[in-house]
């Protein structure tokens, strides 16, 4: 019987060697079929959460369970087997620049299956059709716009019909049309595949339109969580600052520094 939550994060703590605490006893759950957004300021560990889910990092405490398996307890072979159930869209696509669009999408199929070439061709064209880029199959990555590259990467991400799709800042640097297209594709593909999706993003407006649930991460902890409507109605100062894009608030405008007056007029000031 499948577990209730496809991804369950419990008491997760993580710090880079010699660095500050990135995540501190984090709790998070993602049910099958759900699209979840993780939001928060830059440098507060959102991408780290994705890397921990994918097993690219090991937590100091706590655990990430994916499909019932504790990720950091798996050996390399088991981890790679689990990763076949996952797909990850990187911020700028991370397409293989020496391969054409077609070959990029075919890459996971060629690596993990022994499908005949004709079937691979059909599958690749179907995946590219799903993201509207069947006609770009023979282009090279350097011939694509940012939005197109992101869509090709999305086609590659879903090449093996993953059960969990992770998106790292999928809306960054896109024009309004591409932004809307990517947003709709994320929702549509998730529903078509019956997968779960996790979107790490800053883009409140675009993501609230498509997600089922939102986690706000600050200082390595969950600062707020709820449905998109609950987030929009929230009176938590941190959430309000984020949703209304206010420059100052609980997330300070200034990076921590010495006292301004002392720095300008103190003993090291210019005379």
């Amino acid at each position: 019987m499948p577990p209730e939550d496809f991804v369950a994060i419990t008491g997760l703590s993580f710090a880079y060697p010699g660095g500050r605490q990135i995540l501190d006893r984090l709790e998070m759950r993602i049910a099958p079929g759900q699209v979840v957004a993780i939001m928060g300021s830059s440098g507060h560990g959102k991408t780290t959460i994705l890397r921990l889910i994918g097993g690219q990092l090991r937590p100091q405490r706590g655990a990430v369970r994916v499909a019932g398996q504790v990720v950091h307890e798996l050996n390399t072979r088991e981890l790679y087997r689990l990763r076949r159930k996952m797909g990850m869209l990187f911020q700028f696509g991370a397409l293989f620049t020496d391969l054409s669009v077609f070959e990029n999408v075919a890459f996971p199929m060629r690596e993990h299956t022994a499908l005949p070439e004709a079937l691979i061709r059909d599958l690749v064209l179907m995946k590219l059709h799903a993201v509207g880029l069947r006609g770009a199959a023979q282009l090279m990555p350097n011939e694509l716009s940012g939005g197109m590259a992101r869509r090709v990467a999305l086609a590659r991400t879903i090449a093996l019909d993953p059960r969990l799709i992770m998106y790292d800042e999928p809306f960054t640097g896109l024009d309004p049309i591409s932004l809307s297209v990517i947003g709709q594709l994320i929702r549509r593909l998730n529903d078509a595949l019956g997968a779960s999706s996790i979107i790490v993003t800053h883009d409140v407006i675009s993501s609230l339109k498509i997600v089922d649930y939102v986690y706000f991460v600050s200082e390595g902890k969950i600062a707020a969580q709820g449905t998109p409507q609950e987030i929009l109605d929230s009176d938590i100062p941190f959430v309000r600052q984020f949703v209304k894009a206010e420059p100052d608030g609980p997330v300070p405008f200034h990076y921590p520094a010495r006292d301004y007056r002392e720095e300008l007029l103190g003993p090291h000031a210019a005379r």
Binding site: R83, M88, F90, E111
Partner: peptide, 8 residues
Amino acid sequence: SAMEMMAV
């Protein structure tokens, strides 16, 4: 990293 996440 993308390759690693594709279990390659």
